[in-house]
Amino acid sequence: MYLFIISAEVLFWVFVVAGLAARYMFGLKKLGGLLLLFTPIIDILLLIAVFITVRSGMEITTATGLAACYFGITVAFGHRLIKWADVRFSHWFGKGPKPERKYGAAHAKEERIGWLLHLLGWAIGNALLLAIIVYVGDPQRTAALEGIMQTWAIVLAIDFVVSFSYTIAPKKHKHKA
């Protein structure tokens, strides 16, 4: 399962880079869009692998739980990640504007949005983890999943503190002296 998760992450970025390269380096906008459409298909394949693992009675490990987490995060952040990469490719290869760095209130807002997306990913991932736990119905087989849920809740809380700290102490523009 670990190999499948790593493969899914690598394939996600391969299709993003291939799609953006087709769009900006070779001027093939339709092909670029088609390649970008494969990114959610990768997520669906990972989800299918998780359910095959669970249904077959194979051991449910931390990797199974991480696959659910990965799915939640890519659903929540996938569009934003592709947009982030698109802006950079457009600048590097398509004569687009330089990506803008944000400071102050604008940066604080981006951090809060990032945390809200993390919360969404957490909710999706935990819903999937709970679905597996209920489906399996064996606390011994699903103990690793409960541990992941607890750890992720702590990570989410830490991310909240960090993300919202920029509201109190905004990131300042560093002026060159």
Rank of each mutant, 00 (worst) to 15 (best):
I6P: 07
P139I: 09
K176R: 14
L45M: 14
K95V: 09
G121K: 03
V162N: 09
L129Y: 03
K98L: 14
Y70G: 02
I82T: 10
F93A: 10
T39V: 13
V50K: 00
Y2G: 15
G125P: 03
G72C: 05
K83N: 15
V134K: 04
L119Q: 06
L116R: 13
W122E: 01
C69D: 02
P170Q: 02
L156G: 05
I60W: 01
V87R: 13
W152G: 01
I6A: 15
I158T: 10
L128H: 04
A85F: 06
S56W: 02
W92K: 11
I124V: 11
G104F: 13
L156P: 06
H175K: 07
Y166K: 08
W152F: 15
A63P: 04
K30Q: 09
A131H: 04
E9C: 04
G33D: 07
L46D: 00
L36E: 06
V162Q: 07
A67T: 02
V50W: 00
L11Y: 08
A21T: 15
F26R: 14
C69G: 08
R88P: 03
W92G: 07
H118A: 08
R23G: 06
T39I: 06
I148H: 01
L120V: 11
V14K: 08
G94C: 08
I44N: 06
I48M: 11
M58I: 03
G137W: 02
R101F: 13
V134H: 05
M25R: 15
T53S: 04
R112G: 06
H118G: 06
V17Q: 10
P139Q: 11
L119N: 05
A105F: 07
L66P: 01
I60S: 01
T62P: 10
A144P: 01
A21W: 14
V10L: 11
V134C: 03
T151A: 14
A123S: 13
F89C: 06
T62F: 10
I82F: 05
D86V: 05
V162D: 12
Y2R: 09
F93K: 10
A127F: 13
A127R: 05
